[in-house]
Design a binder for these strands. Structure first.
Length: 233
DNA sequence: AAGTTCGACAACCGCGGTTCA
DNA sequence: CTGAACCGCGGTTGTCGAACT
């Protein structure tokens, strides 16, 4: 049996939001709070799908949303995080205060064409899963669409499951020490669970350590747990 | 000046995970 | 325990203005 549609599309407003609709949504959420998106439109007097309301709020109306151009620093961070996390926009957005997953996704997709045109250049951090250029019979360069495997969410349960695997690997208390050997065990666990590519994991962790070193923090107390936690919002 | 192409981004869609009755 | 509803995510499409021919 299939799922029922999230909402009836009949009689619902679509397309760009008007100022009045924005105002109604803001006023309702300010007085009733977020959540219950399915019933929100009716209560707020909006002729919109609940998902549409949620999207509008999350991406544009929510307080603290940063508008405007992506700064070079943000761009660098996006590139680095994308090389580490892939197309997990919500995770990447979580590392960029005020930026939304939709904004970052749009930014990446519109700039990806530029990257493709610059393929072969030495731009840092371009993911290996990006589209590739291929020469046709006439030697012309054509874009080749590369279908990326669907992203796998790293949930708290994933970590718990992996901790169990760690126990099997000899970490009975699931505590991960700070040497690379143990990191590799943890990485193997993640890879076994298809959570992430092992090499990407190690690369990401090493970057994480570098960040900590830059921040002049004491690494003695740093455990892999905090790294994984850092990947979670 | 008119038509076309391109880039940016807002919005929609479908799917999978989670929650709850 | 089961299934429907809810929620959040990533992929894709639609729209509009700017740049170009």
């Amino acid at each position: 049996m299939g799922r029922t549609p999230c909402c009836s599309k009949e009689g619902l407003q679509r397309g760009p939001w008007t100022t009045i609709e924005d105002t109604l949504l803001i006023q309702y959420i300010q007085s009733h709070g977020e959540g219950h998106w399915m019933s929100l439109p009716k209560k707020a007097g909006l002729l919109r799908c609940g998902k549409s309301c949620r999207l509008r709020w999350m991406n544009y109306l929510r307080p603290g949303i940063k508008r405007g151009n992506i700064t070079p620093d943000e761009e660098d961070l996006i590139v680095r995080l994308h090389s580490l996390l892939g197309n997990r926009w919500s995770l990447i957005a979580g590392r960029l205060p005020g930026r939304t997953d939709n904004e970052i996704k749009n930014y990446w997709n519109t700039n990806r064409s530029k990257r493709l045109n610059n393929a072969g250049s030495t731009e840092r951090g371009v993911s290996s899963v990006e589209g590739q250029l291929k020469k046709d019979d006439r030697g012309c360069v054509a874009k080749v669409k590369v279908h990326q495997p669907k992203a796998i969410r790293v949930s708290a349960n994933s970590i718990i499951r992996n901790n169990n695997i760690l126990a099997e690997l000899g970490h009975h208390d699931a505590e991960v020490s700070n040497d690379l050997h143990d990191h590799k065990h943890f990485g193997e666990a993640l890879v076994c669970e298809n959570v992430m590519d092992f090499d990407v994991f190690i690369q990401g962790y090493e970057e994480y350590q570098q960040q900590l070193l830059k921040a002049d923090q004491d690494l003695d107390g740093v455990h892999l747990d905090s790294f994984v936690d850092s990947l979670l919002i």
